[in-house]
Design a protein around this nucleic acid. Structure first.
Lengths: 359, 359
DNA sequence: CTGTTAGCGCCTTCAT
DNA sequence: ATGAAGGCGCTAACAG
């Protein structure tokens, strides 16, 4: 017995409550669970005492005994600070909270090794399931069979080599429509700031771009195409290189919001007149100096649908692939083009802004 | 009796592992925990078998027996889709993950009732601690004494009526400096789009504004001051009303990023020449049509520091107020003004960004 | 070094 | 309608 231990307030147990009422712990348990087979007056007495004492049932013990898993799912994304993932997380959290399920969020910073650790750790914690936006195209470590049967749903990328549900954005259609729009506006020299071809979004979004060019009978100039991980700095530099070509493109399509911002940085600083269309909406796109078209979609819905698929599995007893295979689900979130024409501002003399410091 | 049911992959237990090696569960337990007092060859044998079987320890049972809390902390914010909270969450998550602690994130949408439910639920789940950005100024339901001793750290708002640590942003200094800057630029008719006076940030940010005006010998025109919850639409309308005054302000200060965006929407659509300074940085402020000054600070640091304070308490045995009162900690995150002079990018001059941490 | 005993807090089962 | 016994999976505390 260490005497100098600061009094860590002993969580009350059912025994404490039961003792104070002179009943058994079972009576308390039944009252709290709302179980049948307990007299109403008794239940009231118990609940009153629980309230008075501020007692709360220990979920750990309950779940251990009743064999339930945690009412907790994991969400693994590359970077929660990216608005897309933040919205996805909000959607997942809302859908889960309706079922009393919490969401444990972790960012991998795109590191597959960290992703692997996180997945294993979450499985060891006996989470009820995982929603994963994969950082790489190696999905073997997501296989529920190696995760004690922990159900898994992928988002933004379809499973490769494993058999799980997923929620996808209509990547192909998004860039296809964006490119069609630019072509419709008269552009034929269209650049593309893409993502690594090894990723699903990288290849699909490129495919949409290429298909639209092809359907319009236009050639893709390979000098206009660059691929790199979504990173503002890299996109700035890539855009710079496009502008420095002897015959630069007259329009650019970007494959995600990081690339869009990078392109905007370079374009805003140059006086080139290049049309821009980008995947992912941007909250204040209507306030930019340059007109912008975006491939918009409901990012929250990606999270909501993923949570829904996961909870369906969890509540139906998480049938593991190989046992009862229903065929996996695949939900597609549609995209649509939004134009921010930069038309609201009707100031005839842009220089006027510079005078604002002197009233 | 090796009942390997093909239907439901029942999670393996230590007994299964122990049985296959002909040892006791204690030996397995010691091997897994890295406990001393076990022969190295034995440990290797055990670990090899664990690996071969894909066994994972049940954390629920371990925590129940060892009395440890979850390696899990809760983070309660009003809206994770707000970039400020997203960055805060990333900071908290990074700091926690270093200690092997996960973060359970929940949004309240500013609803105090939901906040209350969430807090009680998280305490019942026996989380190791809570980081809370309060939705209201009623903090009674955060008192660790009514949460079974669950440690609590507040962020962005100091505790009221309870005795817990907190991490604050230098709200007063931020708006003070912003206002000084506008005054230094020659403005004397300064408007203020504030937050409800009942909130800490609402009153402090107003106080900074008022102090700067006062120090400069300027009067505050009450017609120029509005207060409402941070909401883009409300801020748009409030800005409209300011512009419609017979003698509108020549500069406006906004109290958070929602208000800043609302003001920008209205200002961008008007041809009024009103200077704008706003609390919270905005990622693409350099790409806007209008010049903007912001009160910037390291939002990630708010989360990191909050996690640090919380983990300190958790690992030191969470002394609860009333027992051993050390005096609570209060960490202040500094602010600094960043000017986005509206893209005249012929002369990039990045000295304002010196304090920003960027990979 | 390894095994035995006991019990964390709760809930399932069966008795009364 | 209530209570007594037992165990979920794991690990302190003590054997040997």
């Amino acid at each position: 017995m260490t005497a100098s231990e600061p009094n860590r307030p002993q969580p009350l147990t059912m025994r404490d409550v039961a003792a104070r009422l002179g009943v058994s712990t079972m009576t308390v348990s039944r009252a709290i669970r709302g179980d049948t087979g307990i007299a109403e007056p008794t239940r009231q007495r118990v609940l009153a005492e629980v309230e008075a004492l501020g007692y709360r049932r220990n979920d750990l013990a309950r779940q251990l005994r009743s064999g339930e898993s945690h009412r907790l799912v994991g969400l693994i994304v590359t970077n929660l600070a990216n608005p897309f993932y933040a919205q996805l997380a909000v959607g997942a959290e809302q859908a889960a909270s309706v079922h009393g399920v919490g969401v444990l969020v972790s960012s991998t910073n795109g590191d597959p090794e960290r992703e692997r650790e996180l997945v294993l750790d979450m499985a060891a914690r006996r989470l009820a399931g995982l929603i994963i936006v994969p950082a790489s195209n190696d999905h073997r470590h997501f296989d529920p069979q190696v995760l004690d049967g922990t159900p898994v749903v992928l988002a933004a990328t379809p499973p490769q080599g494993i058999d799980v549900d997923c929620v996808l954005v209509d990547d192909f259609r998004g860039t296809y429509d964006a490119c069609r729009k630019l072509i419709g506006d008269g552009h034929s020299r269209v650049g593309f700031l893409g993502l690594p071809a090894s990723t699903w979004t990288g290849s699909e979004r490129y495919r949409g771009f290429a298909a639209a060019m092809d359907d319009a009978g236009l050639e893709i100039d390979e000098r206009y195409v660059s691929r790199h991980r979504g990173d503002i700095r890299l996109a700035e530099a890539a855009t710079r290189r496009l502008l420095d070509l002897p015959d630069p493109p007259t329009a650019i399509i970007t494959a995600n919001n990081r690339n869009t911002i990078g392109a905007l940085r370079t374009l805003t600083r140059s006086d080139a007149h290049v049309a821009l269309a980008g995947f992912d909406d941007i909250e204040i796109a209507d306030l930019l100096q340059l007109p912008l078209s975006v491939v918009a979609y409901d990012a929250g819905a990606v999270g909501r649908e993923a949570a829904r698929l996961l909870l369906d599995q969890i509540e139906s007893g998480a049938p593991v692939p190989g046992a009862a295979t229903y065929g996996r689900q695949r939900v597609l979130i549609p995209t649509h083009i939004v134009d921010y024409p930069q038309a609201d501002y009707t100031d005839p003399e842009p220089d006027a802004h510079l005078e604002q410091d002197e009233p």
